[in-house]
């Protein structure tokens, strides 16, 4: 479990590639620097797409957690 409390949680379960990534990017755009966004995803593409984008875009991937039937990505906006 991560002890970082997300500023915002996006439940993108059931959304297909690249839906969860798109929702994360949108949320990051609207967030303030330092905000923590959690995304729930059931899409297989997210596992590679999200960490890759977070790194390229210069944010921080706090963690990737396997939950029951979905994956949770926790990201901090850095810039």
């Amino acid at each position: 479990m991560s002890d970082v409390k997300p500023t915002k949680v996006i439940d993108a379960r059931g959304s297909f590639c690249p839906g969860p990534l798109m929702e994360l990017i949108k949320a990051i755009k609207e967030a303030k620097v330092g905000d923590v966004i959690a995304v729930y995803s059931t899409d297989s593409g997210s596992k590679r797409d999200i960490p890759l984008w977070v790194e390229k875009a210069g944010h921080e991937l706090i963690g990737v957690y396997e939950r029951e039937g979905y994956t949770e990505f926790v990201v901090r906006k850095k810039r």
């Binding site: 690249p18 990534l21 798109m22 990017i25 949108k26």
Partner: peptide, 10 residues
Amino acid sequence: GVLSSAAAAL
């Protein structure tokens, strides 16, 4: 559609 939306998101 999928590639266009992913590209736009990026």
